[in-house]
Design a protein around this nucleic acid. Structure first.
Lengths: 140, 140
DNA sequence: GTTTATGCAAATTCTTTGCAATACT
DNA sequence: AGTATTGCAAAGAATTTGCATAAAC
């Protein structure tokens, strides 16, 4: 995603695009997979981890990122590509490889909806499949 | 679940039922909701947290528990009631309340299946909905 | 008697926070 | 000037590991 698009995305979500925030957003955007906080830090060694922490928290509040818990003892973040302000969209299934410990986005697979019992209201959904990825099953 | 059932469950999964392990399994079984490691420790103050850690890891390996990541910075465990050895069954949707931070099992709601792309093999699935639970939405 | 489990303390990992300095409007 | 952001260091939370003792088969 181009820098101007990232800035645009932030503005649509009410986040002031500072230099560091642009870097973080671009790192997420350029990554082939959802990144953990530590991984963002690895890519951006100029940016302090406290800034990354606060930036990702801010992005989360403003629905600029999807948060993915894959059980790998660190939460992962994925840039939300919708320009809507409110709810998340483009919610797809994620796959965590138990062998290489990478998390993949299965962009083409939408999360099937469920209807919740009376009284529950939905904010976000995570659909997480664990298993072995193609790379790991072929290299055995 | 009765003590004998817990022992039975362990033996079906190839886990030797020691005193501590029975306590942990019973704690999970008696809880109205999936418990974190710390919560198991709160219930069982006689059992060391290292034992609980190792026990839950063992249960996990042997598919005796479902592992639930609700993003609350601690993983939760739920006793798996099937007596099958291999795959998990009785996979249902979970609900995490953003307000009271409790995790509920929506036992009646099965996780809708998805078909994975070529090459991916499935081991387990998590379907996690976040939002506001009935208790919290009524008390506002 | 050898293997497996336990219990304590210390270590590890990942993340957040306090606070002073800096940059923005 | 006043508010928001940054960067460093230190604190915090959750879990795991090393190792010696104790229990089980």
């Amino acid at each position: 995603m181009a820098k101007t698009d990232v800035i645009d995305l932030m503005q649509h979500h009410g986040v002031k695009p500072t230099a560091n925030r642009i870097l973080v957003a671009e790192a997420l955007s350029d990554a082939p997979r959802p990144l953990s906080m530590a991984e963002v830090g690895d890519v951006l060694d100029t940016v302090d981890k406290s800034v990354i922490s606060r930036t990702l928290a801010l992005f989360k509040e403003n629905h600029l990122v999807h948060v993915i818990e894959d059980g790998s003892d660190s939460v992962r973040y994925e840039l939300c590509h919708s320009h809507e302000e409110g709810e998340d969209d483009d919610v797809h299934v994620h796959f965590y490889c138990l062998s290489c410990r990478r998390t993949f986005c299965l962009h083409d697979i939408h999360i099937p909806a469920v209807s919740l019992p009376e009284g529950y209201s939905m904010d976000s959904v995570n659909y997480m499949v664990k298993g072995i990825c193609p790379d790991c099953s072929s290299s055995r």
